[in-house]
Every structure is written in C-alpha cells, then in structure tokens.
Computed example of a mutant assay.
Amino acid sequence: MQAQAGANEVAVAHALRARIATLRTQLPAGVKLVRIYDLSGLISGSLRDVWIALGLGSVIALLVVLLFLGRVDGALAVMTVVPLSLAAAFLALHALGYGLNIMTLGGLAAAIGALVDHAIVVIERGLHDLSGAREQRRAQALTRIGEILPIMSMATLTSCLVFVPLIFLAGTLGLLFRSMAVAIVIALLVSQLMALLVTPVLALWLAGRVRAPVASRRQQRAQRRYGRWLVAGMRRAWLAIPVVLVLGALGWVTLRALPTAFLPRWDEGVISMPFRTQVGSSVAETTAVGRELLHVALRNPAVARASLVVGRGFSNAYATPN
C-alpha cells in the first residue's frame, strides 16, 4: 500500500493500520496479514526530533537573551516575537503549497537564531543608555530603532539572496534543498517584517518602564578584561596576519581530509532492491526470479522479513511485467 502523491503519509498509515485490524477479524483460518515495513514511524520520529530541536533552540535562546539583556521583561518580549514569526512562516508555507516535513522544519530550526537576533537587536538598541522622563525615553528609543532598521533590512535581504539559488535547483538536489531554502527565506523575511512592525512597539513599551542597569562585578571584570585585550590587539594589528594565515591553512587541510558523500548514512531499517528480468518475461517468470532472491535474502540472519512486488516499481505504478 502506497500513499498518493501529496497525501499525509502518517495519517494514511494510521488509517491503514486501523483498517487492517478490522480485516484481521474477518480473514479465514490460516490467512494472515503481515506488515513488512512501515516508514510512517521514521517520518514521525524525524519530525518529533526536529520539533524537539526547535524547542530546545528557543529555550537556549531565551536564556542567552536573559543573560545579555539582564531583564526578564526584555527576554520575554524577545521570545514573544519568535512564536509570532513562526506562526506567520507556517501561514506563508501553507499559502505557497508547502507542508511541514523534515526539510521545512529543519529550515525553520536553522532560522531560529536569526529570528531571535532580529528581536534582540531592535530591543537592545532601543533600551540602551536611556535617560529622562518616560516620553523622552520613548522618543530616544524610537529614534535609535529608526536608525538601525534600514541596516537590518539590507542585511536580511542579503542573507535571503544567499539561499535563492537553492530554490531553483533541479533534480534530486532541488528536491532535497528547495523546501529548506524556501523555509529559511520565508522565516527571515517574516522575522524582518516583525522587526519592522511588532518589535518596535514592544521596545517602546519597555522604554517606558526602563530601569537603570546595574552591572555585576563579574560583568565589570569581563568588560575590563575584554577592553584590555581589544586595546592590546589594536596596538599589534600585524599579529592578525599570521593568525589568519594559520587558520586558513588549517581550514584547507581539514577540508581536504573531510570525507565526502552525496547523502549522510542513515538506517531506516528497510532495504529495497529493484530487479529486472529480460524484456518479454511474464509475471510468473519474474515472480520465480523474485522468489529466488527472497530465499537469498532470508538466509541472512540480519533480515527479519522480506516481501516481493512484481509488475510494479516503487517509483512507477505502470511498470511492465518484467
């Protein structure tokens, strides 16, 4: 049983299992229905893993935002924008005819950092070093946000242009990367739209209730140490040349040593082996050859079950009898 193109394979598998359970009660004695393989578990597990990675990335981003902004309300404001951006990205994907799969969710997970970064930049820029009464602080925040947004928009468009060529790839590469590239581009554009329309409103609200930041001793020590290192590095700028050359050489050697492959290795628990007999062979002749191959496969102790399909390929519903 195969799901039709565009169907939800997990939903089809659940419905099929329920139907098979009903059919088993109506089968005559000695007849059994045996499930050879079911890839819906692989799909569900992979999607679950991506959702977990997406959630963990959001939580880690929240902790980082809280650490650097030093304000709970600022961190919550940043993380309020992320679900809104993801929801808008889901709507855009649906409008373009894309669904939630490993590639689109992987693209959204990869773009989580950019979603958080857009919100951090706007809020931190708006709340940095404010002074005066409430309306004065809001006016200062609005001016500073207006200065940073055009630069952010250009940076976002540049990042999107990097992924545009992947959208127009053809063949297998296009099948693999198009959905991910579309998801990343949509997430970046939606995040920038939120940075233009929603995040400034949150920043102005926070500016109205701003508190004077109190740096801890650890932060003060880190700032002083970083300042000393920065000044020392600027006074000895020539040291950057050998460092860059060494890093470039190490990168080149590592690149040459890395193993290459079209796809990474994974274990689905299923091996499909297409075979073809001579042109003009009947279904019975092809079945006989297939049964011999089944016997060879079942002699392998690592093989639990084997099945045979004759007269139809996995990718061609109208295959010839051979």
Rank of each mutant, 00 (worst) to 15 (best):
G106Q: 03
G106L: 02
G107L: 02
G107E: 01
G107C: 03
L108H: 02
A109Q: 12
A110I: 06
A110R: 12
A110C: 04
I112H: 03
I112R: 06
I112N: 11
G113W: 04
G113P: 04
L115F: 03
V116I: 14
V116K: 05
D117Q: 08
A119F: 02
I120P: 00
I120R: 04
V121A: 05
I123Q: 00
I123E: 01
E124C: 02
R125C: 09
R125S: 14
R125L: 04
G126W: 00
G126T: 03
L127N: 05
L127H: 05
D129Y: 05
L130M: 08
S131K: 12
G132R: 01
A133K: 11
R134S: 13
Q136V: 14
R138L: 10
Q140T: 13
L142I: 03
L142C: 10
L142H: 15
L142Q: 15
L142A: 15
E147A: 15
I148A: 09
P150H: 00
I151N: 07
I151H: 10
I151F: 09
M152P: 02
M152R: 09
M152F: 02
S153Q: 12
S153V: 10
S153A: 15
M154T: 14
A155N: 14
A155C: 09
T156S: 10
L157R: 09
L161M: 12
V162R: 06
V162H: 07
V162F: 11
L166N: 13
I167P: 02
F168V: 12
A170V: 10
G171M: 02
G171F: 01
T172L: 15
T172W: 09
G174R: 01
L176E: 10
L176G: 02
L176N: 06
F177E: 11
F177Q: 14
F177T: 09
F177C: 04
R178T: 13
M180G: 03
M180N: 04
M180Q: 11
M180K: 08
A181C: 08
A181W: 04
A181T: 06
A181G: 07
A181S: 13
V182G: 01
A183G: 05
A183F: 04
